[in-house]
Design a protein around this nucleic acid. Sequence first.
DNA 1: AGCTCTTATGAATCATTGA
DNA 2: GTCAATGATTCATAAGAGC
Lengths: 292, 292
Amino acid sequence: MTNFYAVILDMIDARVHCGDCAEILQDYPDAFFDLIITSPPYADRRQSLYGGVAPEAYVEWFLPKAEQFWRVLKPSGSFVLNIKERVENGERHTYVLELILALKKAGWLWVEEYIWHKKNCYPGKWPNRFRDAWERCLHFTKSRQFKMRQEAVMVPVGDWAEKRLKRLGENDVVRFDSRVGSGFGKNIANWLGREYVYPTNVLTFATECSNKNHPAAFPKALPEWFIKLFTDPGDWVLDPFVGSGTTIAAAVPLGRHVVGIDLKPEYCELAKAAIPEQMVLLEPTGMYVCDG
Amino acid sequence: MTNFYAVILDMIDARVHCGDCAEILQDYPDAFFDLIITSPPYADRRQSLYGGVAPEAYVEWFLPKAEQFWRVLKPSGSFVLNIKERVENGERHTYVLELILALKKAGWLWVEEYIWHKKNCYPGKWPNRFRDAWERCLHFTKSRQFKMRQEAVMVPVGDWAEKRLKRLGENDVVRFDSRVGSGFGKNIANWLGREYVYPTNVLTFATECSNKNHPAAFPKALPEWFIKLFTDPGDWVLDPFVGSGTTIAAAVPLGRHVVGIDLKPEYCELAKAAIPEQMVLLEPTGMYVCDG
DNA sequence: AGCTCTTATGAATCATTGA
DNA sequence: GTCAATGATTCATAAGAGC
C-alpha cells in the first residue's frame, strides 16, 4: 500500500517568490488562500540594518499590502499577524494599535488577539522594564463565518491528569471493567476523554534559535498551530514576509500548499532551503517555483 | 523587641471615599500618590444592568478622570490600568486601543504592557474563539525617570523553592521579619537560597476572589505585585475604582497608605470591610476615614 | 509526607427572545 | 431592523480533605 504521507507530499505545492508582496500577489486570483500568516518586518529606526520601516510610516507602508491580502483571501479565510511594538525612548510604540484600527477601517474584522508567551525570551536587564516575554498574534477575518478547526489543536491536559493517566496501566482498566461489568469504566472513560482539552488564547511556545540569519524568526510551532487551526489539508497558505521560511517548513509536512514571498533575495534562498527535503528530493515538475 | 508588622500597621492610613473619583480627587493635593492602580469598569452595552459604560463613549468617560490622576500622581509615580476589551458581535472592541492613544495624547508615557495570564479562566466554548485567558496591565508614567523596585518582585527558580515557599505560611513571614527587623521578603529570599530571578512582563496569577459580592475583582496577588514593584513602604497608593477593595487588602499589609474610591455605596462598604482586621481592631484616630 | 479525589469558582460568549 | 435583556453552555485550575 502506498505511503499516505508520501502521497500527500507529492501533491504539495510550495513556492517562493522574491519581490514586493503587493506586486507579486497581483498574479494570484481572488479568494485563493485559506490562511495568510506572517511575521512582518517590525518598525525600526535602524533602517539600514534590517531594511526596517520607520514607526511613523508603518501603517502607510502596510495598508496597500493588506489590500492585496484581502483580495486573495477566501471569505472563509483567516489572516494572522504576529507582531510586537518596539520600545523607543523608554516607551512602547503605538504603530501596532494604529495598524489594528486601520485594518478594521479597511474592512477587516478583528476577531481575536492571541498571546504568544515566549518562555525563554531574550535576556537582558533594564532599569525601567522587565524582559519582554510575549508577542501579539492578531487574528483578522473577512467574515464572521470563518473556518476554525478547534479539535486540531487540542492540547494534553495538565500535570495532575497526565500523571494519573500514566499510572493507569492496562491491568487497572481490566480490573475496573470486570468489577463494574460494563464495557468501559465510566471514570476511566472520563479520564480518557479528558486527555486532550481545548487551548485558550494564550499560547506557550519556546523560541527557537535555529534560523539565526533572520532577525524576526518565530518558532515553527507557531505557524503550525495556526495552520492546523484555520486550514484543512490541501488548503493554501500564504506568508507574504516569509523570511527564513518557517511558515513553509511548517505548512508542507502538514499537507498544505504554501506560497512564501520576501523582498530580499537572501531570505528567498533561505526560504527555498526551508522546503522540507522530501520535496526537494522528489523535485516534481512545477512544484518548486522561484522567480527571484 | 517590637513586632515590626504591628508597628507598620499602626502607621498605615487606609481611606475609602464614596463618589466620582474625578470629584473626590479634587480634595487631594498635586503629586500626592506614588502609585495609581485600578481595574475600571469595563465597557458594556448593558448599561441598566451593571451600570456599565457604552464602548463608544468609554474614552470620553475616562479622560476627565485621567486628568485628575495625572495631577495627583508624583512625577516619579506609576499608573497601572488592568483592563480587557470585550467581544461584541464576534469582534474585539477597540476602545482599549483608543484609550491608550488618548492617554498618550494627554501626556502619559505608555511605558509597558504587562500581560496577566489567568490560568483558570472562565469556561465556555464557541465556534469562533477559545477561552479568554489574559488581560492587559497597562503601565503609564509621567516621566521617563520613575520609581521601580525590581528586586522586590523577584521569583524563585525551580520546584524546590516553590515547595518551600508554599509551606511558608503568613505567620512565618511575620515571625521572620520581626526577628530580623528589616523589610518584607528580602531576607526570606536570602534564607531560602540565592536562586531568584527577575520576572518577565507576563504575570501568571490564578483568578481568586474572596469578595463574592463584587463581580469585578482581580486577585490580590496582582495589586500586590505592582505595589511592591512601584512603591516603597510608607508610600501612597490610590485605587479610583476600588470595587470590593482588593487593592486596599493588598496595600495595607505591605505597609503602604492607600485611598480607595468608588461610585457605588455598596462597593464602598465592601472596600471598608476589606481593610485588614488589625487596622479595625487597633482603630487609631484618623487612621480610618470614610465619607461615603 | 505524598497521593488521590472532590469541590468551588472564575470581569465570558452566543443564540434567542421580546420591545 | 436594531437594540436590549436573558438563558444555556462551558472547563481547567487550586485548594483542601482524606487516606
